[in-house]
Every structure is written in structure tokens, then in C-alpha cells.
Computed example of a mutant assay.
Amino acid sequence: MRDQQSTMQTQNPISQAQNAVRNAKNATAQMQSHPTSQTLEGAENAIEQAERAIAQAQTSENERAVAESAEQLTEARERLAQAQQVQTQGNIK
């Protein structure tokens, strides 16, 4: 447990952005497989958090990692938009 805590303390903005994007992707996948207003809201929140994390990582020297995270977030946003379109059609409980 101690190693896990020290790892969490040493996370840099890049790893935080990558983790936030991974969470957003997972949330959008869950929302797609179980479309409810709750999972939709969770996906929206996760994407917002990932956007903030990427914004903070923009100051990093590792531009490639930031760009890859931003690209993955764009894909998650697209999945969210598709799900919102389905919700508009009345398919989400």
C-alpha cells in the first residue's frame, strides 16, 4: 500500500491526463453498454475532468503524450455525442 501511495503522489500532469482520459473512455464505454441518465452523466463528468487534466498537461515538454491523450479524448467525446443523440431519441431511461 505504501508503494501505491508514493506512486500516486509522484504522478505528473501527463500521467494524470492519461489516467483521466482512460477513465473517460471507460465511462463512455459503460454508458454505451448500459445507457441510463446516470451513466451518461458519469461519462460527461469524466470527459470534463479529462479536459481539465489535459489543459494542465499542456505546459509539459512531452507534447506527443499530450497530443495522444487529446486525440483519445476526442474519440471519447464522439462516443458521448453519439450516445446523447440516442438519448434525444428517447432511448435512455
Rank of each mutant, 00 (worst) to 15 (best):
E63S: 12
V86A: 11
R52T: 12
A46H: 04
A65T: 01
Q56D: 14
A27D: 01
V66E: 06
I14W: 02
Q87E: 11
E75A: 15
A24N: 09
N23G: 00
E51H: 00
Q11A: 12
R52Y: 08
R2K: 12
P35A: 06
R2S: 14
Q87I: 02
I47M: 01
V86P: 04
A76Y: 06
Q82V: 11
Q49I: 11
Q18Y: 02
E75V: 12
E68C: 03
E41H: 00
S15E: 14
A20F: 06
S15N: 10
A55H: 05
R64D: 15
R79A: 12
L40F: 01
N19L: 13
H34K: 06
S60H: 09
V86L: 14
K93C: 00
Q32V: 10
T10P: 01
S37D: 00
Q4D: 15
A24S: 08
Q87G: 06
R77G: 05
T39L: 02
Q38M: 01
E68P: 00
E71N: 14
T39D: 05
N23K: 02
I92P: 00
A53L: 10
V21N: 03
A24F: 07
G90R: 03
A53V: 05
D3T: 10
Q87Y: 02
E68S: 09
M8W: 13
H34A: 06
A70P: 03
M31Q: 06
A17L: 02
E44G: 01
S60I: 13
N19C: 05
Q84E: 14
N12H: 09
Q30D: 12
Q18G: 00
R52V: 10
T10L: 15
Q72E: 15
A46T: 06
A27Y: 00
A76G: 05
S69Y: 13
Q89M: 15
V66T: 11
R52D: 11
A20G: 01
Q56N: 13
N12F: 05
T28R: 04
M8G: 10
Q82F: 11
K93F: 00
N62E: 13
Q11H: 09
D3C: 02
A57P: 01
Q89W: 10
Q9H: 12
T10M: 14
L40C: 04
A70H: 03
S69I: 10
L73Q: 03
T39F: 05
M8H: 12
L80F: 04
Q5L: 15
Q82G: 09
E71D: 14
E51V: 02
K93N: 04
A57G: 06
M8D: 15
Q58W: 13
Q11T: 05
T28S: 08
H34Q: 07
T74Y: 10
M1C: 10
K25S: 09
A65I: 06
Q84D: 09
Q72W: 10
L80G: 04
M31Y: 07
S69A: 15
A55L: 10
N45M: 02
A81V: 04
V21F: 08
I92L: 08
T28W: 04
E51N: 01
Q89H: 03
A50P: 03
R77Y: 11
Q32N: 08
Q16T: 09
Q30L: 11
Q72K: 07
Q9T: 08
Q82E: 15
I14P: 03
Q5S: 11
A57V: 07
H34L: 03
R64Y: 15
A65D: 02
Q82S: 09
Q89F: 12
T36V: 04
I92N: 02
M8N: 13
T88Y: 09
Q32F: 05
V66L: 07
E68F: 11
S60Q: 07
